[in-house]
Simulated scan of single mutants.
Amino acid sequence: MLDTHGRALVQPSIQATAQFFINKGLSANQVTVIAFLVGISASVLIYFNQAIIGVLVLWLSGFLDAVDGSMARQSKTTSGWGTVLDVTFDRVVEAGILIALALKHPDVQILFLFLVLAISIIFTMTIFLTVGAVSDKQSAKSFYYQPGLAERTEGFILFSLLALFQSQLILWTIVFIIVEILTGLQRLLEAYRILK
């Protein structure tokens, strides 16, 4: 939701950073890898009790994740491989946060909720990626970007809440699960409407 409706507010800084990296000779895929490494380091920081720094680093990786796409579009170097790399690394960074928190909090109830959360993310992402692959609709990205209640920014907010308020992990994980399921159902209904 925030990505769809708020992107225009941050797009100038994303484009300026993209142009800066292009001028420095970096490719979009190189920035994708940098964003991935930064994102993974957020998990390490969170595991080692540096949650505030870890969350800031996570958001930096998210910013770079937006920059790489802008770089590809500005330099006209978009590719299927770049899209696959980008989407795959996004999921690995998210999994890294969950793994770091699971290692810190090996309580059975929390681990079960993390499992349900992971399944709800898989559910939502499966619909998102499948609709993007089979839809004739176009977007600025290399596939149809289906809007929803929880997009990348909302995910980052929820992962940040998990990391920063670990004493309330059960509450925030349940909230995250509900948001993911609602998003999946919303996208499923839209898929039925546009693909039937």
Rank of each mutant, 00 (worst) to 15 (best):
T4W: 08
H5F: 14
H5S: 09
Q11G: 01
P12I: 14
I14T: 10
Q15S: 13
Q19S: 09
F21D: 02
I22Q: 09
G25Y: 04
N29Q: 11
S41C: 10
S43F: 04
I53A: 14
G54M: 04
V57R: 01
L58K: 10
L60T: 13
A66S: 13
V67I: 12
R73V: 07
T78W: 02
G80F: 08
G80T: 13
T83S: 15
L85M: 10
V87F: 08
T88K: 07
R91P: 08
E94S: 04
E94M: 03
G96P: 13
I97T: 04
A102P: 09
K104Q: 13
P106E: 08
D107Q: 13
L111M: 12
F114Q: 00
I119G: 06
I122Y: 14
T126V: 11
L129R: 03
V134Y: 10
S135T: 04
S142M: 05
F143G: 10
Y145H: 09
P147A: 13
G148P: 07
R152V: 15
L158I: 06
S160V: 08
L161I: 06
L162P: 00
F165L: 15
S167G: 15
S167C: 03
Q168N: 15
Q168E: 09
L169W: 00
I170Q: 13
T173L: 03
I177N: 01
V179W: 03
T183L: 01
G184M: 00
L195W: 02
